[in-house]
Write a protein that binds this DNA or RNA. Sequence first.
RNA 1: GUGGGUAUGGCGCAGUUGGCUAGCGCGCCAGAUUGUGGCUCUGGAGGCCGUGGGUUCAAGUCCCAUUACCCACCCCA
Length: 452
Amino acid sequence: MAKGNIITPRTLSGFMELPPQEQVLFERIKATLEDTYQMYGFYPIDTPVLEYSNVLLAKSAGETEKQVYRFNKGDKDLSMRFDLTVPLAKYVAKNYSAITFPFKRYAIGKVYRGERAQKGRFREFYQADIDIIGDGSLSIVNDAEIPSIIYSIFTDLGLSNFTIRINNRKVLNGLFEMNGLDDSATDIMRVIDKIDKIGVDATKAELIEVGVTEEVAATLIDIMTYKDTNANVIAKLEGYKGRSEVFDLGLSELSDVIYYIGKFGVPEENYRIDLSIARGLDYYTGTVYETFVNDHPEIGSVCSGGRYDNLAEYYTKKSLPGVGMSIGLTRFFYILNEYKYLNTKLNSPADVLIIPMTDDMSAAVSISATLRECGIRTQIYMEKKKFKAKITYANKLSIPFAMFLGEDEIAADKVTIKNMITGNQETLDLDAAIDTMVEVLEEMDEESIITK
RNA sequence: GUGGGUAUGGCGCAGUUGGCUAGCGCGCCAGAUUGUGGCUCUGGAGGCCGUGGGUUCAAGUCCCAUUACCCACCCCA
């Protein structure tokens, strides 16, 4: 083909493509999430990436809608999902009569946002959601179970240095009400939310800009930046009781959630009341969470969620309260990869590479079947290449074992296995070789994916 | 959508006040070692310096335009 006809292969900005060694690690993390979600009794649900625009955008407005990838195909107006929660709402409303409530479901899939990509922010990224939907009502204890699942996942992966920050929108609404502000002032919440990033002075200035008096701004900042043990924050908030019904309800919910998270076994250092946490999408009405990797808060939340009173109000008249959380899997992985948290020893696609040295590969093929039956991930190098090229392949792919099958081995009904990490090599009966490999592989299996 | 930065072999970079055949590290290929990788040594392949135009005897280097990407804001996982 003429050179002028070659198209430069490239990938859209904000769309992540990983090299295979990294994709292996990504998949392992994803598998851990799935296993844990199932461990807590969640159903997997997979909804389409594309939806009718009027369904997907039923309740959104402003910023969200601007970021949606939307287009026409024939006479259909279509949009790509920007989260997994709205499709869940549609799903639950559509299948209401077939669902047994409370409905616990998880979903892991790609979502799309047409915003400018930047560090840790993508246009196509994975979210891994769990939600619990009630029919008419839903216990507050669910609000505590969700963060305990997040805790379980992160610690299983080997990460301990993270904080789940917890707040309650009703507490904020109540505080606004006490201070004579519109109780649903989302613009005020957004400003408060930035306080860690831009500092007290800038926050105060921005609050005044959105119409808050200087005195009220100072009061709000004072309360919302109060950092202490969970018990002490609750104690401080108790002092405001009796001045707003919404506030009292919110405080009671918050106390319950904090109490039960502890009961679920989450250590105090991994969850903290943070009254400046306000965001997440605007449908949250009670508990809200945001989770940060402690060493890299600048990348943003890797996991956020909360309680919503009425998930599917645009699709049904039923009252369907829910609580859920979404892990930004792509961003989470980006941080782990970028800052070298990942255990790269675990990135091999196979446990053993069989290297046949004869033209006849029947021994190699039948042995591969046996190895796989024993749970050993096995690959055969089938190409006619020099021996050196074959063993180099195992080395490049970090495959921990190479198995040589030459004329000598086949004649003696033995195999030679080489541990590629230690360099040790021995010729054994197949059964003995399997035992040797399994022992080493089981040890490797116990290593966690995150090593920091 | 707004503001700033960058663009040189597959990847990461250097290229001084514009001056001869554009370098370095990593990677890749081959050999030293035709049943032994990682280390070392030797050799090799691979770039019309993002694109278009301009200034000049001469442009990777200066000017203009354009495109792409990155960083930040907005917003968010």
